[in-house]
Design a protein around this nucleic acid. Structure first.
Lengths: 343, 343
DNA sequence: TTCTCTACTGTGAACGCTCACAGAAGCATG
DNA sequence: CATGCTTCTGTGAGCGTTCACAGTAGAGAA
């Protein structure tokens, strides 16, 4: 007596029911479901109406069984878990990818590889063909998981240029060097001459490139490279704090600092404030990422925006193209300077 | 000439291949795969050896097609996206659930419902039976998605007690009231008498319960409830900051404050420092959650630990029990006071 | 012996879909 | 009128499992 939904849990309609309802064959319904080529408008309409009437939704398992595709893709994070807990960039990227995939009706399977055990399990899961491809986030070089997946022929799209994986793996990245140049030019344009830098880890392309941009602009401006003005961190807040302390010690006359991530920049701000330096009056601070952390810090952080939305949509686009048989591709996206109160 | 992995992409072994290799029938292999009841030790061993030799992994789609289960479960977050970006608690919970599910070889599908459009899409996806159950994170009351899912009979386990969903939905929560009592007792034990509070949103059970605990302890200690000492926030950092400012204005003699989340407590610390109050000397600050934010703040935040690991494993346990046919259950877990430098 | 019971094993029939193929209909071309 | 081409449609087979059922063998009871 009640509607379908309540209690009963009756068997859901199949493609067969839809075909009968629409007065056509299974084949025609299937064709409508998959793009509608070679289907007459009349049949098209009849099938769509029948689908609406019956409330039919495709059984993905039956489809996958025959197509061999799972129509789902994995999001694999091989960073240590503390970084996942600390850095909101992951959340932004995760949300972007989830959304971009949802537009194609593809679910995202979350895979977090912290321990060695997890790495093994996840590798096995992926190489078993349970996902069609993997969106990879792993900044450090020599990632064994990525290497294995690539070897197994799993479509892979990395966020940021992966080190040591050859040209066979696609990636989407922001233009790190150009962004760094913009920021350092901005700092110089404020009349600062003692510009320090807290770099990212130098075994990552991002870390190297942002440092390269810094050096280039200094050279162009005729300023000598002073190694007392450069320390390196690991993108964590704590390393930013420690870095700033070292800089203040080694170069007390520093009047600006370019920090390779917003999270580290938060640490830098804290260290500067503790040391009694005013930001931006005494020391101007520029970050990188435009992560939510940049807005949350006080004063608001001037930073280089990574176009996270475009990065995630591009990752998904490249992934789908690759699953469709295209060759791996590299996409570099432009960054943008966002001025706030810290400079 | 090369091993299976490279280039070739040959057809993976099926249960049939394993059966032939082991000299038994498909049925026997299937029985070994599913728990091994009614299988002789000899056959058991032969099948396992054959599986190892062939590198067989089950085709989940074929299995799902016949069992009707998807063997995957969704993690649904209906919070606004800013909260997802700001609050590391979500990451902790997400990781916990991913891990707990992985132990059962069940993938986690991430579902983020920000816009109305996404809500619809996700609801359709879930009610279509593409997941076996949903782990739900949505603190606010009257969540229409949750209501619909419950109506459709989808197994649901919420994190935190859901409002307005009747008793038909399982949940796992920390003992908010007891945790709040512990914290306020701790603050009083330091000799403070003017203890303020920044509450969570009062349309959430967590918000209400933590406030109730605060009131209880004050009453037990014979202290009058002073409404100038209580402001409410929305768990965001910014609301903590604003709350602290209001408290300082309305009750300048405040010597301690209990903040209903660590994130808000970060904001409170910032506001206090800006107002020139020393923590903990002038004002002691206690948070709630023991989120990564508590460790990152300076001074380190005394807080009430929510047992995130147990919360996530319990959520998964209850979920699997429910899928297995058991009734919805409520689990309340004890909290723990973690002392750091802010008190 | 014969029967029953338990422990184990094999087999056919689904599950709901897509794909390849065959065929029909309509229309232009030889 | 046959032929070919294009557009559309229906049908059978099969994807890799699990499940129900039938059947076998061996042990113990009648």
């Amino acid at each position: 007596m009640t509607m379908n939904a309540a209690g009963g849990r009756r068997r859901p309609p199949t493609i067969h029911d839809v075909a009968r309802e629409a007065g056509v064959s299974r084949g025609t319904v299937s064709r409508v479901l998959n793009g509608g080529h070679y289907v007459s408008p009349a049949a098209q309409e009849a099938v769509n109406a029948a689908i609406r009437r019956t409330g039919y939704v495709v059984n993905r398992h039956a489809r996958s069984l025959i197509t061999g595709r799972s129509d789902s893709i994995g999001f694999l994070l091989t960073e240590p878990q503390e970084r996942f807990f600390e850095d909101p960039n992951f959340n932004v990227l995760l949300r972007g990818c989830t959304q971009a995939l949802a537009a194609h009706d593809i679910p995202l399977l979350l895979m977090l590889a912290g321990t060695e055990d997890e790495r093994r399990r996840i590798t096995r899961y992926i190489t078993a063909g349970h996902v069609d491809g993997v969106l990879l986030v792993s900044s450090h070089s020599g990632d064994p998981v990525a290497e294995q997946l690539r070897g197994a022929g799993v479509p892979l799209v990395a966020c940021g240029k992966p080190i040591g994986l050859g040209s066979k793996v696609s990636y989407v990245a922001a233009d790190d060097r150009d962004g760094a140049r913009d920021m350092v030019r901005h700092l110089l344009s404020l009349g600062r001459h003692r510009v320090g830098m807290v770099t990212g880890p130098l075994d990552t392309p991002g870390g190297v490139e942002r440092l390269a941009g810094y050096k280039e602009v200094l050279a162009d401006a005729g300023l000598a490279y002073d190694e007392r003005l450069v320390v390196s961190g690991d993108y964590s807040r704590a390393s930013g704090e420690a870095g700033a302390e070292r800089l203040l010690e080694r170069a007390p006359d520093m009047d600006a600092v370019f920090v390779a991530s917003d999270l580290m920049a938060q640490g830098v701000l804290a260290a500067l404030q503790r040391a009694g330096r005013r930001v931006p009056q005494d020391v101007a601070v520029g970050g990188f990422d435009d992560s939510p952390a940049a807005l949350a810090s006080s004063p608001g952080l001037t930073t280089i925006r990574q176009p996270w939305d475009r990065i995630s949509t591009e990752m998904v686009r490249v992934m789908l193209a690759q699953i469709g048989g295209e060759d791996p591709a590299a996409v570099i996206l432009p960054t943008e300077l966002v001025k706030r109160e810290s400079t």
